[in-house]
Amino acid sequence: MSLLEVRDLRVAYGAIEAIKGISLDVEEGQVVTLIGTNGAGKTTTLRTLSGLLKPLAGEVTFDGKRLDSMKAHDIVKQGVAHSPEGRRIFPLMTVEENLELGAYSRKGGTTGEDVASVFTRFPRLEERRAQKAGTLSGGEQQMLAIGRALMSRPRMLMLDEPSMGLSPIMIQLIFETIAELKAAGTTILLVEQNASAALALADVGYVLETGRVVLSGPGKDLLKDDKVRKAYLGED
């Protein structure tokens, strides 16, 4: 049994159905990526998995537990962390306060160790620990968003467009971080526009088009697939 199982998930905004029946699996320790154009339903899928949206139909099972009717704050407690699109750090709080909030779902216990490990991973954040998060650069905010998601000690990390709007150097750094996390055995569900980098990292990839999975398979295979190369990697 996979860690995360999604079966025939359907989600609608009002009368408009954004997800028209998606099924996918994430095994423990895998990196799985969802790629697709704008409006394909990638972000909607993640928001539904983390409970921000309510599905119309379908099942979401995580480690044997049904998530589809659970509230967002309870889903976090099951070990699903979601670093949202656009980073969404708390701008009026300091870097350290943002990280502490990441551990909110773990009642009690110390967070010092986790904060220290985030700082080891992202030394830039340690330099700015007392700074208001709203004053950080885009790349630093992305580090903070990932670090904050790690604070809950998740069993699965969902990253939504972590490279969006960043400089090439920053993008490289973020993908290196994801590779390190993968090497450390973290289960990751990654949504990316940067399909080549994402597929290169991923054990499994799913290609979404207008709310449906049109193609799936090992990341390396998708990378070689003609259709994928044409449509998402910009090659002729």
Binding site: V11, A12, Y13, G14, A15, R47, T48, L52, L53, K54, P55, L56, A72
Partner: peptide
């Protein structure tokens, strides 16, 4: 009323 985003 039926908008899941709004409900969220």
């Amino acid at each position: 009323e039926t908008d899941p985003a709004a409900e969220a």
